[in-house]
Design a protein around this nucleic acid. Structure first.
Lengths: 200, 200
DNA sequence: CAGCATACGGAATTGACGTTCCGCTTGTCA
DNA sequence: TGACAAGCGGAACGTCAATTCCGTATGCTG
């Protein structure tokens, strides 16, 4: 999130900084709604700016999307950090998944990126690494408490989230249907015992 | 699967029939590997044929993909029919999901189509309808036997399969990682009781 | 307030890909 | 085997979206 000016570089002109913000916001809206193949022109129009300006701030479409992804992952990573403070280990663990799923449900591009093969581009790696670290800890605690199945490993999580992400996109009479999916998955993750009823 | 000549239409010339087959096979290979945005030229090259020939048999790229999807769904639908003959209801139900997942794992385009919003194009609908019917029956039986959670509904299945599909695409040290995902999901679907250990 | 580097807008360029066209080839049938 | 419709190959075309370019506008500095 650090938008601080790197030492040695001149600060952006006031209007430039303002525009950069407008572009980011517009891009967030556009890519969330239409997924990664929304067009740069749309982003520019939505930002009330020329395409040239968009390109002044982000050298390629890929770079722009990457910037958005970093911020999305930071949101989830923050949720994970916060979960470390929750007393009940199962609750702590699941809250991160719910939060992550909710983020995906609101951002079509995010789930597409999540599912894509190249996926993690250079820039998001540090954030993802931190998130992985935190989630590992949450898993460890939940397993120690006997709430989470012992054979679950961190690597299972991205796969599961990726699944939730696509369930999120699938058209359905009820747009909240993905909650059923996550509920099922969470029941599957519970240490052998009982599961609650599915929502809705 | 019926490649029978529709009554009233002249039969294809021998070489044409042969080429149609080559194109379908090539398309299956190419789209499975590269997903729906593989190029028509690639299909043609792989089939050892000119693009024109591809277009002689399938008027648009969309139509070609659709033909592949129909055949993929027919494979799964056949598996579902076969499952009706399995004695153990839980076994019968899960076998369809495993089979479907396996099909997806081998076909990138399939999971993309499955996840896409418009998704079910005209032509696949009949097959999907039949599949849905059969799966409903399998669900009913498994629930009656007390093996499957009572609150699971047919609509949960496409969502879940869609999730598996994307887990399938995600790069992973172990390409069979999706099996862990499906295992977790199946455990989540079990009627409250114990779940088996995850594979590998 | 003048001078200029920084930014801006948006038309033009480029590249990629689906699709069409057409002259040539090859089964098929009498 | 000759004639012709059915097929074929692949160059050419059209569209669409990313990216570049450049003349103009504007914040900053002295």
């Amino acid at each position: 999130m650090s938008q601080l000016v790197a030492a040695g570089e001149r600060p952006l002109r006031a209007d430039a900084r303002r525009n950069r913000e407008k572009v980011l916001e517009a891009a967030r809206a556009v890519f969330s709604e239409q997924g990664r193949d929304a067009q740069m022109d749309d982003v520019a129009r939505r930002a009330g700016v020329g395409v040239g300006t968009v390109y002044r701030h982000f050298p390629t479409k890929e770079a722009l999307i990457e910037a958005l992804m970093v911020s999305a992952f930071e949101t989830i990573a923050a949720a994970a950090e916060a979960a470390l403070a929750v007393e009940d280990p199962w609750e702590a663990f699941t809250s991160v998944l719910w939060r992550g799923a909710e983020t995906m449900a609101g951002d079509r591009a995010l789930s597409e990126v999540f599912a894509s093969i190249p996926g993690a581009t250079e820039a998001v790696m540090p954030t993802v690494a931190g998130l992985t670290e935190t989630v590992s800890e949450l898993i460890r605690r939940a397993q120690a408490a006997g709430a989470l199945r012992d054979d679950l490993i961190v690597d299972d999580i991205p796969m599961v989230m990726c699944g939730i992400g696509s369930a999120t996109k699938k058209e359905h009479r009820c747009p909240e249907a993905w909650r059923r999916h996550l509920s099922i998955v969470l029941d599957g993750m519970r240490a052998p015992s009982a599961g609650g009823p599915l929502p809705s």
